[in-house]
Amino acid sequence: MKVIKGRGAVSDAASMRFNLPAREVDGDWLDAMETVDGRSRPPTTTVTEEHPRSILSFNKSPDVPFDRSLNAYRGCEHGCIYCFARPTHAYHDLSPGLDFETKLFAKPAAARLLRETLAKPGYRPTPIAMGTNTDPYQPIEERYRITREVLELCLDLRHPVTITTKSDRVLLDLDVLEQLAQRNLVHVGISITSLDPVLSRKLEPRAASPAKRMEALGRLAATGVPVHVSIAPVIPSITDSFMEAIIEDAADRGVRSASWIVIRLPHEVAPLFREWLDTHFPERAGKVMATIRSIRGGRDNDPNFFTRMRPEGVWADLFRRRFRVAATRSGMTGVQVDLDSTQFRRPSLDGQLSLL
């Protein structure tokens, strides 16, 4: 496979789960493009504005720590090859490969839709999770500022919110995050896979560099915003060697909680990841996949509740022990999110706040 500069996936194969036809590409035109231009044209990013009827997604999964989430965007320009959200693009007859990171959707009415939901008499507040599917601080957030609007609404209505991101763009909203933190209404997690910028450009080509993410962790911690470092995903024989150094570096910057998640490869992510391995690490591709299968019950992926979040086997036990020792040495604790939902002020549909 040929490396596509600035992108994670190396193909745009269609999903086979929904009997979608494979795309027919005008091969003659693509061949002529290099002849005429003298170079191949990289795929560009497009953004389509989406106008859904609602914005909160509710779930009853017994092994995730939240029951509602908000995703301002579909697709993610960060291009993380391991992203478990890639298969969702197949619902739109788009490829979970290159389409996922180049054909994006934005929901500019997210804050308005959220206000409408929070105004309903039957609504009961509990933390809203942002960044559980695609990153709320991917590059297009700098233009759309949808995440900013949602956070401002949460501050106005005193609604708790959690954020997971791979970007230092979270610092653009530091003023709002500080105010939320003063009221115990926010918790931020920043995910770091390695400390090697070269490896990061291959794994997550348009995410912030590891150094910038570390700096963001330190600034959030210094301003009193509850923050934790997520070593996610841990990829055997690719990123696992950075576990101890990530914990130590984050602890030195004042971060006091950490977590780790081993790589998951649901649906189309598995073949995309295999392509990526064969392209970037052909000499160890077999070893990496063998280790992943050993901790997933002999399969590329374990879709079952609980066990999907708790890998098994000698490699998983080794990662678990290494994390525990490093966290203890650095004074890290597990992630505990205990935000305050009692301050919530329900709005009326005309924008007024309730007097009660």
Rank of each mutant, 00 (worst) to 15 (best):
M1Y: 05
A9T: 01
R17Q: 11
V25K: 04
V25N: 04
G27R: 11
A32N: 04
P43G: 08
T45L: 10
T46V: 15
E50R: 08
F58C: 03
S61V: 13
P65Y: 06
D67F: 10
R68D: 04
R74N: 12
E77W: 09
I81Q: 02
H92P: 00
L94W: 15
S95H: 04
L98H: 09
T102P: 14
K103A: 12
K103D: 04
F105H: 07
L113H: 07
L113K: 03
E116K: 05
L118G: 12
A119T: 06
A119V: 13
P121A: 06
P125K: 01
P125H: 06
P127D: 08
N133L: 14
N133T: 14
T134R: 09
D135Q: 13
P136M: 01
P136R: 06
P136V: 02
P136S: 04
Q138A: 08
Q138E: 15
P139C: 10
T147A: 05
E152R: 09
R158N: 13
H159C: 02
P160C: 03
I163M: 11
T164S: 09
K166C: 10
K166P: 06
D168K: 06
R169M: 15
L172S: 08
E178N: 09
Q179S: 14
R183P: 03
R183C: 06
V186E: 02
I192R: 03
T193Q: 15
S200L: 09
R206V: 11
P210A: 10
R213K: 08
A216N: 07
L220N: 03
S230P: 00
I231A: 09
I238K: 08
S241W: 11
E244T: 15
A245M: 02
E248V: 07
E248W: 01
V255A: 02
I261M: 00
I261L: 13
P266I: 06
V269A: 07
P271F: 08
E283C: 00
G286E: 00
K287L: 12
V288A: 05
M289N: 04
S294W: 04
D300K: 01
P303Q: 09
W315E: 10
D317A: 14
R321Y: 14
F323M: 05
V325S: 08
G331R: 05
T333R: 02
V335Y: 00
V337K: 07
L339S: 00
Q343M: 07
F344Y: 09
R345Q: 11
S348W: 12
G351I: 06
S354I: 09
S354A: 07
L356F: 15
